[in-house]
Design a protein around this nucleic acid. Structure first.
Lengths: 140, 140
DNA sequence: CTACATGCAAATCGTTTGCACTCCA
DNA sequence: TGGAGTGCAAACGATTTGCATGTAG
């Protein structure tokens, strides 16, 4: 929690719980999921507060955001440099690390387009749990 | 246009124009933009037809889809293996090629998560046109 | 105390869908 | 001709916002 205070973020019950929820798991929950879970501990919390809080944390660089899939945004508590494996069936997102990708330097071609700042990588495929599955799965 | 027929896609005036519009430029227009431009030649076309058509083309693998930024989806006429430089200020998307990325093979770590199928990469930064710009830009 | 955070409800915005009509094959 | 394609308008779902009230500091 000290992290929040250090970022000059005013401390509230709902913020603490949202923070705890997102950082307390390796999952990459969407706002709705965070909401549902935090609600168990803070029944009065509202979905828009969760959104506002998540956006605040992101602006402060406390969490990241995943999602090239287009649909709902997923949030990411891992602020270390890493990449994602995304299951195209159930949407599950898993972190992974790669020296090869970390070492990647944009080609001259890119440097001529502008000023590169970060690299976003998604390895897409089908996760173990979904392999052999026919229907969707909609798992989290 | 033969491509469309080859994919068993029933040919219509609006489909031909949408296809021409998307593939006729190196840009990565969003549905709204395609709509606005095609409308000049086919005044009666509707936005939802553009969406339906774009989705159809994508399902057929005729075009791709870009956008980890979250907001509106951009479509991509380049079906060759390539990657994107995305301007965080104006949203402009530019293709680039990279042997290094093409050679990338997911680490064991990833292969244990599931079955990788494709790689999505975005180099994010500020494009030349936006460098030195303070306000947004909202360019396309 | 006072500015900022919250809950509620309504508003946005991109995208999709139901339906009746038109048109390609 | 018949089923697929289109336009229109309404539906949708995720996310945001205005406002009055509550609360951290």
């Amino acid at each position: 929690m000290a992290v929040l205070r250090r970022h000059g973020i005013r401390m509230t019950h709902q913020r603490m719980e949202v923070y705890r929820e997102v950082t307390g798991t390796g999952e990459h929950p969407d706002a709705e999921t965070v909401y549902r879970r935090v609600k168990r501990r803070v029944p009065a919390i509202s979905l828009d507060t969760v959104y506002r809080t998540l956006n605040l944390f992101e602006r402060q660089g406390l969490i990241g955001r995943v999602g090239a899939t287009g649909d709902r945004t997923r949030f990411d508590a891992n602020v270390k440099r890493h990449h994602h494996f995304v299951c195209m069936r159930c949407g599950r997102v898993t972190d992974f690390y790669s020296e090869a990708l970390d070492a990647f330097s944009p080609p001259r071609e890119v440097r001529e387009m502008g000023h590169p700042q970060s690299l976003y990588v998604e390895v897409r495929g089908i996760c173990k749990a979904c392999t052999g599955t026919e229907g969707d799965g909609k798992a989290g």
